[in-house]
Design a protein around this nucleic acid. Structure first.
Lengths: 230, 230
DNA sequence: CGGCTTATTGACATACGTCAACTATTGTGG
DNA sequence: CCACAATAGTTGACGTATGTCAATAAGCCG
């Protein structure tokens, strides 16, 4: 059940990139009609096609944007973590959601009424500038994803994904996946089985581990695999 | 060769969604350092990795954003027409271009210096609001494309693409593709050969025509093919 | 009318998905 | 703490959609 907002939720909201720039009065107005929800994994925030009545802000946990396909297939488009703002585009344009949202990791989210958010955007220039910057970053994230889908094999896509989790260091590294492998497969546009097999491929260049743990023995080999100018 | 701007170019710029909202003084400053270029098909505006020194506005013709793949393969990400603004994200964030841009149809483009555009965004709240709205629309376009790449077959992707060109009418329609079939294939994430074969599939439900002309005898059949809930 | 690019078609290879079986892994209640 | 079920991941066998390579045909332009 949505509940009204508490003091430390307000602090969290104030700490997000988007809302931190708002003037105090504008921030107060936004927070006014705001609801906060704690949700278990699997919970659905909204479904594709719903009217965009709320802007969601992730306060904790993780939320996946998923597109529904034929016969219960689905594709994960993007995953959001604490501090990020969800589906602003639908809210800004006052258009139905293009995707559904589902909790992948026990989450706490704030729901800001769409109309008051749009008003804040129109009245507070810092907000629209911050919004433009956030959307600009997302444009790049999505374009990168499209490039990968169109030009890279399953194995390479996994490689690129892992590289994004690696530090610049060149020694062996252990990383922790923030999603289970099934979700990761869907996000990367492949079946869980293909993911599994692609990981098997990567084993020969020193990528191991199991479950959510992945060990990359030789990051440089992985980088070489994914480098374009081969 | 880039040349300085002429009166009717200024009128065109003033007519675009993004720049029309600017206050006169801000608009004048932006136009100040602006160059205009007329370019033949095949011309490259900039390449992936270049520093984002300019924001491009398409005044006429068409420009494709393309990602370069291994051994001279490439993927078309999006195509822009007159009135649209190109790769604002890189300019806003002052990051290198993620993609290259190539003219697909004899074009005229205005080049606005990145720094003065960023300044205009910061100072003119109407501009950042308009920018946020434009980027919001692009987010939806890109997400739609990702959904299609992840969930639909080549034939369905073509179907959806054609549906986007069709009027709501239910009678036979003749439409004109704005790109050659090779470019269209790349934009849809498939080889030209696959596009050709998928068109052959569609023939049995009344999709015909050749070259840039496509005839859809029974739009309803096409809609049915692409409808999700089978 | 040749040349030129662009589109189609055929034969073939292969990457990836699907279905099904099997094996961890995790969680639950006795 | 162990059995058990439930879930998640792996592996194998197989089918198929899509890419690749090569040859042909069809538009297009000087």
């Amino acid at each position: 059940m949505p509940s009204t907002i508490r003091a430390n939720d307000i602090a969290d909201l104030k700490g997000t990139e988007l809302l931190s720039v708002l003037a105090d009065s504008a921030f107060a107005r936004i927070v006014e009609g705001c609801l906060v929800q704690r949700l278990p994994p699997g919970a659905v925030l909204f479904e594709e096609g719903d009217r965009a009545d709320f802007l969601y802000v992730v306060l904790a946990g993780r939320i996946a944007l998923v597109a529904d396909g034929p016969d219960h297939r689905e594709a994960v488009i993007e995953i959001f973590a604490a501090g990020e703002v969800l589906i602003a585009p639908a809210v800004i344009l006052d258009l139905p959601y293009l995707v559904s949202a589902r909790v992948t990791e026990e989450a706490q989210v704030a729901m800001l009424p769409a109309a008051s958010f749009r008003r804040a955007m129109a009245e507070d220039s810092a907000a629209s500038l911050a919004m433009a910057q956030i959307l600009a970053r997302h444009w790049r994230i999505l374009v990168t994803q499209i490039k990968e889908l169109k030009l890279r094999s399953t194995t390479e896509r996994i490689g690129v994904y892992l590289l994004g989790l690696l530090s610049a260091d060149d020694g062996p590294q252990t990383i922790r996946l923030s999603e289970d492998r099934g979700t990761m497969a869907s996000r990367l546009g492949m079946s869980p089985e293909s993911l599994s097999r692609a990981f098997a491929q990567l084993r020969r260049i020193g990528v191991g581990g199991r479950g959510r743990t992945v060990v990359v023995a030789e990051p440089e080999k992985l980088r070489k695999l994914c480098r374009r100018e081969d």
